[in-house]
């Protein structure tokens, strides 16, 4: 190994470390939950409850959908965290002759906006199949 090459390799190291950290951060952002033996971290548990308050009456128990709102465990298979946030905050409408789907905007609702990442974490855990239906148990703090 020639010196210049070794030097070049050394120079690359911080960049590699940076990109690995970035990848980990991205993964953490897209999968912000911790599930161990069916038990969840506090944030994910809080997401379960906030979901129950603000989302369940349309999207059904456990994010499983209803006759008038989509199954979110399916939706989050092809939606990013960013897109999820966008729709919850701004709402969206899909009103045609055969369907009238209206997601209200939750941008000004304290109990949703403050815990948006928690709600996402819960639903993403459900969507990824790592968390079953019903009330999850909490991991010890």
């Amino acid at each position: 190994m020639t010196k210049p090459l070794a030097f070049a390799c050394l120079a690359l190291l911080p960049a590699l470390a940076w990109s690995a950290a970035r990848a980990a951060q991205d993964a953490e952002y897209e999968r912000p939950y911790r599930v161990e033996n069916g038990k969840v971290d506090q944030a994910t548990f809080n997401g379960y409850r906030r979901y129950g308050n603000s989302c369940l009456q349309c999207h059904g128990p456990d994010g499983s959908g209803s006759s008038y709102a989509p199954n979110l465990t399916d939706s989050l298979k092809h939606m990013t965290h960013e897109q999820f946030n966008y729709v919850v905050i701004n709402g969206r409408q899909n009103v045609t002759a055969s369907q009238q789907n209206v997601m209200p905007s939750f941008g000004h609702v304290e109990d949703v906006v403050m815990y948006l990442d928690d709600i996402y974490a819960y639903l993403k855990a459900r969507s990824d199949g790592v968390l079953g239906r019903g009330r999850p148990e909490r991991l010890p703090r």
Partner: peptide, 9 residues
């Protein structure tokens, strides 16, 4: 249609 569309727990 809620819950039952998805089945009960």
């Amino acid at each position: 249609g809620i819950g039952m569309a998805a089945g009960l727990t």
